[in-house]
Design a protein around this nucleic acid. Sequence first.
RNA 1: GGAAAUAUAGCUCAAUGGUAGAGCGCCUCCCUGUUAAGGAGAUGGUUAUAGGUUCGAAUCCUAUUGUUUCCUCCA
Length: 479
Amino acid sequence: MQRIEIKELLATANFGDKVNVKGWVKAFRQKRFIQLNDGSTINNVQAVIDFENTDETLLKRISTGAAISIIGTIEESQGAGQKFDLIVESIEILGDADPEEVNKTILAPKRHSLEFLREQAHLRFRTNLFGAVFRIRHATSFAIHKYFNDKGYYHIATPIVTGSDAEGAGEMFRVSTLDPQSPPLTEDGNIDWSQDFFGKETNLTVSGQLEAELAAMALGKVYTFGPTFRAENSNTARHLAEFWMVEPEVAFNDIVDNMDLAEDFLSYICKYVMDNCADDIQFLNDRELKEDSKKPMAERNPMSLIERLTFVIDNDFERITYTEAIDLLRNSKPYKKKKFKYPVEWGTDLQSEHERYLVEKHFKKPVIIRDYPASFKAFYMRLNEDGKTVGAMDILFPGIGEIIGGSQREERYDVLVEKCKAFDIPEEEMWWYLDTRKFGTAPHSGFGLGFERMVMFTTGMANIRDVIPFPRTPGKAEF
RNA sequence: GGAAAUAUAGCUCAAUGGUAGAGCGCCUCCCUGUUAAGGAGAUGGUUAUAGGUUCGAAUCCUAUUGUUUCCUCCA
């Protein structure tokens, strides 16, 4: 008999249908009611078993966490929680779950802290919470591919092992097959990387941008969506050592086109998730409200998850320049009361306390800040006419901070060569990148979206370690 | 890399330097149209680890380890 998934069953079942359902036992009440879930939806199907005519040892094996297969008939439910029941005709235990053992895991039918769930990342998929999170993570990812595909972008695979260390986005993880105990040495006693697998020093990529630019200068509109790695020792709720990044790169786009694209893109993702994950979003929305009700007023979310997503769909982001941001901050209450720990001066980067003030206190909405001083931005960003700022833009979200960082790229060969010198980037290493500026160069722009930060927004989860199945952070690579 | 907090039963947490406790879960029994089911009972501890102070340490001190939060870095 063909198995039917619970999502389809709940949508299509008619009274009298005979079906086969397989899944994991969420709860077994009164020896009669089995709540069964198969991951296709957050919703369970309720199976009803005639316990008086069922073998006692079989009943014992229908325990929380067990995998079972049921053949039965759909009938109108006598209870209030569901429209129909699956009346069990036959039941097969596919995989037992010893209650004494289950009790030591997060499968135990009770509330668990996120920290405890994280310790059992291999099992947390089974919980309602993480089922919802990872279904939404999938939908978020799919929305990204769909958005770009529908608009004629090409997905480009950029290398994960990179031989260039000029990306400048952070500390890198070395990739090597040399014997760490006794690596080959050069005459002057340094490690001889020429004998390594690739014949040179290689690392895990921190960004696919430079390669994406090469593709954009021929295919026009491209995007990458791949893993990136940062060996930064940062222990925060919004950093991972291994994370996924989405990087569109578009020929002939200037910085304003770039901002328009980013805003339309983020709005589309939110709408897609709202339209396609209604049950999961509702569950996370209600869960957050419940959790918030235990917190003091000041720590609660000013808007619910659904309100936040709707807000991004319906409203434009605030757009200001770096210079305007500095003026705003210097006229702000916390600045005048000397509440900021870091100085606010034109020419220094904004600290998270400043960004939080602008996004969460002043504008109370997503903010795009553009035209940063060239001094603390990457070498490839296009120098503005003022000679002091570059065509960079960061998008800041409430509670998450920088979700997107992007720029118009420097397309002028001479200016870029000067920048390389100023940033101590050897030209001979960047010959392939500089070549695009020699042969038919053109204005172009792009940005990087931290995928997990986006999933934080679409799920409302507060810790980035809870939106990726197996988080990699300093000192942690379990599972 | 910096700072702080924290570590007690399977989980979440109490315990003012003086007998180690609750709720939930698991287990047993009762009930049987429940849906965070209900009722009764039972189980469960080298108080993270190693030292120290004290008549006496879960409690105070030191170190180590783990976890969390904030900062730095960014996405």
